[in-house]
Design a protein around this nucleic acid. Structure first.
Lengths: 396, 396
DNA sequence: CCAGTTTTGCTTGACCATCGACATAAGACG
DNA sequence: CGTCTTATGTCGATGGTCAAGCAAAACTGG
């Protein structure tokens, strides 16, 4: 009978999602506070709180508030109620993580895994690795509420399928969500890797920032755009493709896209490596540029700083057009010290309007190479913990 | 008693807003169709439909659907249930209109009205003119559900007040909404004129287009940005300021903003006029440039086309970054024939990525100099007919 | 250990939104 | 003109929500 009352309590609690979204900031709150915040009667509130606690999404906090009489129990969002499987699949290597509902990693692994092995081999490995990671933290698939995947190419976010990816042979139109969810039994969300990195960085600053740009400077150059807290994907999901913007006075540089003077062909990691090799340095891929910079190679440092200036020029346009309050620079090259950022800052602050730059932050990625996997988790969490989804889960 | 039943029907109909947003597409629908679309019981649906009909926001359509039995009455959104007062205040002249809830103008007037007369004189004239226009269409202030105003400078949209406008002496921090709504007794929404023009153009294509850019080429150059059907204003409300992006190879041109090589100083109507005058033509303001082009003056036509190319260069960057599905070009200079658009198209299609341009439309403004006033009406309608606002109005 | 204080859980009755069923209205068709 | 079909209005039943009240719980302070 107690069992059935609990289920009944759950069955009547549409609107619990709104309650959860209040509690998701992590602050412990008493019933009285929650009743005031929601505007519900205490009885109604208790009903919905019960529903959320029955789902283990909310738990009573240990420390109670003493005010002379009976102490009020406080309640907080229970981050560890569910697990998220997050994957950031790059061109050559991958990072997988099992996180809780606050993106905190419980187990994580990076590995060499070339994306060009094709979808089935890569995703089979991904499932196996997720199983191992779950074992490491002693949890099971039953606790997993969703899977987020970032891919290094254009993804039609509605269906979660890659479309005409230039560097992912065999992946075109492969139905990643169906394939994975059939085998893992949880909803699967897929997006472009840069969008996901932007989302990951946004998560950390979401209370202060509404509009931001995440710039990834790796082998190529791309950016993720966040407008009013949502990813702007554009009409064909091709937004943020700043790598193929033509920059002035480089008309002789030919890009792999066939055009001339592309930012990527001027300031991308691949281009830097090629140019340094021509100058006699030992560099073939963007990682080598990072190593040279870390070793204090003057030519490499100068090249990276100059790349920062070229990228900064494009970003100065972006600042005037988009007026973000934050630009985060990430990717391999950005992680090779402050040189890239220095170049970026130098140009943006001299070129953009004061109104747009006076409150503009320009920072390196806080999450570094974890931005992608964090963003994949954020994508899942935002979806699974959205009020209407929670209502449905609680009512069912 | 019938009266009170009607009011009771209204009093219980939270959720009517959702129903209205279905009907707002203008298609007549039967009760059965609406019940299916909303998922409500027919009785519930009738209740809410009654509430909307009591507010005169929905009306039965004349033609019924015959299917063997009793014919089903169909219902449509009643555009003429309320009026909107829309104003597009420019630097030197203004356009005011009284429109219905589908932005159709019922009375309209343009007049010389320099914005630098200051807020109180201009707004007093505005109120008087609105009163006259209402008289012309035989309606009263009681039917007005909102007032929309576009101003030629930066506006903090949340409060509706201009902030540091460069060309509106006396307007800084003037509380336009309070001043007007105290005198007209309806909600007042204020925004930047370019944002409003973008909204006006968006309205006509909203069923096919999610992301678009409206470029205004008048004395200056600016653009309005629409992402997922919403205006993107940016962190300081300064988004879309492409007029002060630095374009290559014009480092000698000094802009009124103090910087060098600004797009506006190269391709704006004011700059074109100045350059044509230097060449011996009779031009002092951007309107004169339009007149020269219309008269077939070769120098003027070439100047405008070249301006189109310069603007197109910036827009090519914008296309790569933002990936809109539509670019609309408006403003004085754009209305001087297809010359500007030709220059814009030329550069965008040659410079941007095929993925981003293959489904990209580049058009001149359909609404022309009515874009602003239409957008002002749209701003009001979107606000007043938003589901939650309708629910509140119906329940009250 | 007891009185005071405040939270909490539970119950009750009232209210309201919603639904399903039934009766009635309105036109089509023979 | 009656019958058939479909649409629509009405009414009672159901269930969610709330306010109020009461008893129990849990801690403080004397």
């Amino acid at each position: 009978m107690t069992e059935s009352t609990l289920i009944d309590a759950g069955g009547s609690a549409a609107g619990a999602g709104a309650l959860l979204s209040i509690l998701r900031d992590g602050r412990p709150r008493t019933r009285a506070e929650l009743a005031q915040l929601t505007g519900w009667a205490r009885s109604t509130l208790s009903l919905r709180l019960d529903a959320l606690m029955h789902q283990r999404l909310v738990a009573p906090t240990d420390d109670a508030i003493h005010s002379g009489g009976r102490p009020a129990t406080t309640f907080t969002f229970n981050q560890s109620a569910r697990l998220v499987l997050a994957a950031d699949l790059g061109v050559t290597h991958a990072r997988l993580a099992v996180t809780d509902l606050a993106t905190i990693p419980l187990a994580e692994r990076t590995a060499e895994m070339p994306i060009d092995r094709g979808p089935e081999p890569v995703l089979t490995w991904l499932i196996e690795t997720f199983r191992q990671l779950l074992g490491e933290c002693g949890r099971s698939l039953a606790d997993v509420c969703g899977i987020g995947v970032g891919l290094p190419g254009p993804v039609e976010h509605g269906t979660g399928t890659p479309v005409n990816p230039p560097i992912m042979p065999g992946w075109d139109r492969f139905a990643v969500p169906q394939w994975l969810s059939a085998r893992l039994g949880a909803p699967v969300l897929v997006d472009n890797d840069v969008n996901i990195m932007a989302l990951g960085e946004y998560w950390a600053v979401r209370s202060q920032v509404q509009h931001m740009i995440f710039v990834k400077v790796g082998t190529g150059v791309g950016c993720g755009i966040i407008s009013e807290g949502r990813i702007h994907r554009g009409a064909q999901g091709a937004a943020g493709d700043i790598g193929h913007i033509r920059v002035p006075s480089f008309e002789e540089v030919v890009c792999r896209c066939g055009n001339i003077g592309c930012l990527e062909a001027v300031a991308g990691g691949g281009a830097l490596a090629a140019r340094l090799r021509e100058a006699g340095e030992d560099a073939s891929v963007s990682r080598d540029v990072v190593d040279l910079v870390r070793a204090g190679n003057v030519r490499a440092v100068q090249a990276v700083r100059q790349a920062g200036r070229e990228i900064g020029m494009v970003l100065a346009w972006v600042v005037n057009f988009f007026n973000p309050s934050l630009i985060v620079v990430g990717g391999d090259i950005a992680e090779a010290g402050e040189h890239l950022l220095a170049g970026v800052r130098e140009v943006i602050y001299s070129r953009s309007l004061p109104l747009a730059t006076q409150h503009l932050g320009i920072l390196t990625s806080e999450l570094g190479d974890r931005a992608g996997v964090t963003g994949a988790a954020v994508m899942v969490i935002e979806h699974v913990l959205a009020p209407d989804v929670v209502d449905q889960a609680v009512t069912a």
